[in-house]
Design a protein around this nucleic acid. Structure first.
Length: 475
RNA sequence: GGCGCCGUACCCAAGUGGUAAGGGAGAGGUCUGCAAAACCUUUAUGCACCGGUUCGAAUCCGGUCGGCGCCUCCA
């Protein structure tokens, strides 16, 4: 089966074919580390993770590179805004470098909690200034740049394909409609490759360059670093949908102008997570973090499950009730898998019944169809609900499905069992359960209920079933 | 002003021509001393609205209304 993914420039779902057979080189736009990532940002990395896992599932050897934007850029809506990193550092009374490190670490804590497989290479913009300068030099040598007001600009008039990728109609764009025009630009869509004259006063991070002491334009890092680690042509470039008209358009212009070659074959863009009143925004300061979700009693994987319920190219409505629904759903799934685990232990050596094949085939078709994770989840549910499938076979199938979903299903299910077997707690709880069941036999329900209540107060929940009483930690 | 996306049950959401996946919540039931858990059943003759094409439309076309995103750093 061939994996098909939506490719932004063609606006179609296309069969995926890598440049080099069996090998995929993929780059993802990472976070800007001046504050914590919010759950909307995190959606992008979960989507990229699903893509990466799906590629692995289809047998490709994947090299995945992600950048960390640790050079400061504009804070906000107006040209007079300060540098984000500088403002953050001032507020926290730390250096910009400390700020970057702190939020980078925080980002990867979230990444880990969400079961996002860590990229093969994580590269920081500030570690690649020489590569960026070299790229600007290369563009300058070929006449794609001009210097004005101390800054080096990319001249889009020298790159006729500019905007094709995003379907931009250059004449219709109202550049400057929302921000003040930069009087140095020949064309409003020209963009800065290298700043020496900062629009804002204090700029903490500066480097020497052939054009003077300054710092790189934002788009530069992705071109320079992706080409360093993946070559001048590679397979997939991923990022948020907001990047299409500006960031990725500019990256393509400067990369393809420099090399004279097609840069990237497939562009993968995820839609936004939106709140009732619109998207979350880092710069507006009103956003929800993964930690906040945890503080509210959610497992980060509840959020991952929530994301998987929707297609990556549709806006997803976030709300507390929707997340609570995902939490209940994920727990139910883990619960059922625990049950399958128990049945597998007690199963006869010869297993018969229906097989998991049809579910697995459906799952494979759905993931191959532009990563339809919502359908995949439905296939998984159908499998775990079908008791005719021999438990061991079901478990094998669940494991393979979860290699893409990344919900840690088997681990969670086993952990739930392990909790049941927590020895220090266990002997005491088992004793109380025996007492309670004795009381129930004597029809001393007051005593039985008081034991149940006492255990519940200690976070132990009893479940009376046909095979006796089980217990688990309540959550 | 331009570009793009979307509007499916109480909530999240899949489905892009053949008669509405899945999860959550709710309801009823089985079980239970009672609960809880589990399990079973159930919940849109209809997919914002109005026209049109078609044997057939949530799906295609036109229009209306509503929401969101982008054009500014942004996932």
């Amino acid at each position: 089966m061939i994996l098909k993914i939506y490719n932004t420039p063609s606006r179609r779902v296309e069969e995926f074919t890598p440049i080099e057979p069996g090998v995929v080189r993929m780059y993802g736009c990472g976070p800007t580390v001046y504050t914590y990532a919010h759950i909307g940002n995190l959606r992008a990395y979960v989507c990229q993770d699903i893509l990466r896992r799906a590629l692995g599932f289809f047998g490709y050897s994947v090299t995945y590179v992600m950048n960390i934007t640790d050079v400061g850029h504009l804070t906000g809506d107006v040209d007079t805004g300060d540098d984000k990193m500088v403002v953050s550092a001032r507020e926290k009374k730390k250096t910009v470098w400390e700020i970057a490190e702190h939020y980078t670490d925080a980002f990867f804590v979230d990444v880990e909690k969400l079961n996002i497989a860590r990229p093969d290479t994580v590269c920081k913009a500030t570690d690649h200034i020489p590569e960026m300068i070299a790229l600007v030099k290369r563009l300058e040598d070929q006449g794609f740049t001009y210097v004005a007001g101390g800054n080096v600009y990319f001249d889009i008039s020298k790159f006729p394909r500019y905007g094709d990728f995003a379907g931009l109609k250059l004449d219709d764009l109202k550049a400057g409609a929302r921000i003040e025009k930069d009087p140095n630009k020949r064309n409003p869509l020209d963009f800065v490759l290298w700043f020496t004259s900062s629009k804002f006063g204090e700029q903490a991070m500066m480097w020497d360059s052939p054009w003077g002491r300054g710092y790189p334009g934002w788009h530069l890092e992705c071109s320079a670093m992706s080409m360093k680690y993946l070559g001048e042509q590679f397979d997939i470039h991923a990022g948020g949908i907001d990047h299409v008209p500006v960031h990725h358009t500019n990256e393509i212009a400067q990369s393809e102008a420099a090399t004279g070659k097609k840069w990237v074959n497939y562009w993968f863009h995820n839609e936004f997570l939106v709140m009732a009143d619109g998207k979350m925004s880092k710069s507006s300061g009103t956003f929800t973090t993964l930690s906040a979700l945890e503080a509210a009693g959610y497992d980060p994987l509840d959020y991952r499950y929530f994301l998987l319920g929707a297609h990556y190219r549709t806006q997803l409505q976030f709300s507390e009730t929707a997340l609570a629904g995902a939490q209940a759903g994920r727990r139910g799934l883990v619960e059922r898998i625990s049950g399958i685990l128990r049945r597998a232990e007690h199963a006869q050596s010869v297993e018969s019944g229906s097989d998991a094949g049809e579910y697995f085939t459906a799952f494979t078709e759905h993931i191959a169809n532009d990563l339809n994770t919502s359908r995949c989840l439905a296939d998984l549910w159908a499998l775990v609900k079908d008791e005719a499938v021999p438990p061991r076979e079901a478990l094998g199938c669940i494991e393979r499905m979860d290699s893409i979903l990344g919900l840690g299903l088997l681990e969670q299910a086993r952990a739930a069992d392990a909790e049941d077997r927590d020895v220090t707690l266990s002997s005491e709880v088992e004793q109380l359960i025996r007492e309670r069941n004795d009381a129930r036999r004597r029809r001393d329900f007051a005593r039985a209920d008081s034991i149940r209540d006492e255990l519940l107060g200690r976070g132990i929940q009893l479940e009376d079933g046909p095979e006796g009483t089980r217990w688990k930690k309540s959550s």
